[in-house]
Computed example of a mutant assay.
Amino acid sequence: MTRTDHFHDPDAPQPNSIAIAVSAFVLNEAGDLLMIRRSDNDRYAIPGGQHELGETLSQTVVREVDEETGIAVEPTGVIGLYSNPAHVIAYDDGEVRQEFSICFRARPTGGRLRTSSESKEALWVPRSDVDNLNIHPSIQLRIRHGFEGRTEPFYT
């Protein structure tokens, strides 16, 4: 399924859903950021996805990072709560979702880097290279907040 992100776009379609989602800011020992290149929009992002019934939010983070990258993680904190109504995500099945995502800080605990049906590429990106990638502004904000090492979560 493809998606189109509308960000502060006056011509964006009206949202018809909202879903709980998570993302994970994961650094390895060298300080490189775990990222994927998404299959649905070809942009780079930190791993994450939709919360499922029967899971805790922490379990969602662990599952999503493993599914998209092959890396096992342990959530260690919350970077922020991102609920910008000016960020609308349109899917080709007709769903138009308002953004709502909780970004966690997590540490890698094992696994082997690999891709999935949701990720064309899974990689550790040196901090100096992050700005050279095609990243949506809402994900750039989470990454910036992650590198800032905030002690209090960001929220909108």
Rank of each mutant, 00 (worst) to 15 (best):
D93C: 06
T115I: 15
S83H: 08
R107E: 15
V96C: 00
R114L: 09
H87T: 12
H6M: 04
T60D: 03
V61R: 08
F25N: 02
S128L: 14
L133A: 15
G54K: 06
S119T: 08
W124P: 06
L57D: 07
S138V: 12
V78M: 09
V22M: 00
E64N: 00
R112H: 15
D42I: 09
V130N: 14
E74Q: 02
A21C: 15
A19T: 03
P108S: 14
R3M: 12
R63I: 09
G77N: 03
Q98E: 15
N132T: 15
R105T: 12
G70E: 00
N84C: 08
P108L: 13
V73S: 01
W124L: 05
V78E: 08
G111Q: 13
R43A: 11
E121G: 10
P47N: 13
E52G: 07
I36L: 06
I89N: 02
L81N: 03
T115G: 08
A30I: 01
S128G: 14
I135A: 12
E74N: 10
T69Y: 00
H87N: 11
T4H: 03
T109V: 14
L27A: 01
P13T: 02
H136P: 07
N28C: 07
F7M: 14
A21P: 04
A122L: 03
D131N: 15
V96M: 05
P108R: 14
L57N: 08
L27F: 00
V62L: 04
P126H: 13
F25W: 05
M35S: 01
A90E: 14
G110L: 11
T60C: 11
T115Y: 10
D66Y: 12
E74M: 06
A21E: 10
R112D: 09
R38A: 05
F104I: 11
H136R: 14
H6L: 04
I79D: 07
I18F: 01
P13H: 02
R114S: 05
W124I: 10
N28E: 00
D11P: 05
I139Y: 03
S117M: 10
D66A: 14
S58F: 08
A45C: 07
D11A: 14
S83F: 12
E67I: 10
V96E: 04
V96T: 06
E55L: 12
V130T: 11
V61A: 09
I135F: 07
V73C: 04
P15G: 03
T109K: 11
S39R: 08
P15A: 05
R38D: 02
R97H: 07
R114G: 04
K120W: 09
V62P: 04
L133Q: 06
Q50S: 11
V62Y: 00
N41I: 04
L123Y: 13
E99S: 10
R37L: 07
Q59G: 12
S117K: 13
G77E: 05
V65H: 07
S17I: 06
